[in-house]
Amino acid sequence: MRLSTLLLAALLTLSVTQAEARVADDDGPLKIIATVPTYGLLAETIGGDEVEVVVICRPGQDLHSVTATPSLVARVRDADLVLHTGLDAEAWLPGLLRSSGNLDLLPGNPGSIALSDGVALKEAPTVIDRSQGDVHAFGNTHVWTDPLIVRAMAARVRDGLAAARPGSQALFETNHAVFHRALTEKLVDWLRRAAPYKGRELVTYHRSWIYLLDRFGFVRIGTIEPKPRVAPTTSHLEKLVETMQGSGTTVIVREPWQHPQATDFVAEATGATVLELSTHPGFPEGVDGILEHFDHNLAALEAAFGEETDG
């Protein structure tokens, strides 16, 4: 028998029997994969020392541009739970989970916690095909931008953690209750602060912010992209400038990964203020907690609409 045949036999044996040393220790922290920073912070806030969290998407990163690196596959392989939006928001997730071999985390299994469950999705397309751009089949999936939805997500995280580790249920309930109370107080504050600006209009680059805008009564009158993730054309931008000038709209919201040229063109033509809101806790730098993240966004919109009024 040739040496290479022996080597192959050894590799086959190794492959079938090989498993990395898995932590089967119930006393160790629950290993959690969160697709975005908001979900990661929910897990840390409610799970405390009982959880160890890896967040896949960086705070200022486009969720669509996540790539499955080998080190990420290794982290997913050992995870107990994955917190994700669900639906078709994280298109790369099923492939990542299958690559890792950790089928316990696939949707439908107990290790998979889809945080959009129970959320009434906005902008569900009436026609689903690519003529509509990069459209999500079930509706707009940027649900984490609404603090009221995040409050409901926190309860799902609490229940998911408690199901995975029943012995720590009391801790998860207490931590959740404290967060729930703090977020509710803040929501009351934000709604009161936003009330004077109800009905104010703005433009966003992508359809990312509809849940936040609807929650506080702001109105999106257009987008820089003609259709989701379709690059803006000059004629579309000119039409948008006309619309903004006609309605006196002077606020544009964009995200850090989007083309500044198109936004700058519209801003220059209309004299509008361009806002880069906090996409998740951690962006921009210093906006670290969930409450601070929403505070930052409300304050930015308040300031922009305040300037509009003063102007």
Partner: peptide, 23 residues
């Protein structure tokens, strides 16, 4: 009655009805 206050404030910002997908 924090929750009551919140619900009253939320009621002041009506949410848009959403069309259903036909596909």
């Amino acid at each position: 009655d924090l929750e009551g206050q919140l619900q009253a404030l939320l009621a002041d910002v009506p949410q848009r009805p959403e069309p259903r997908s036909t596909v």
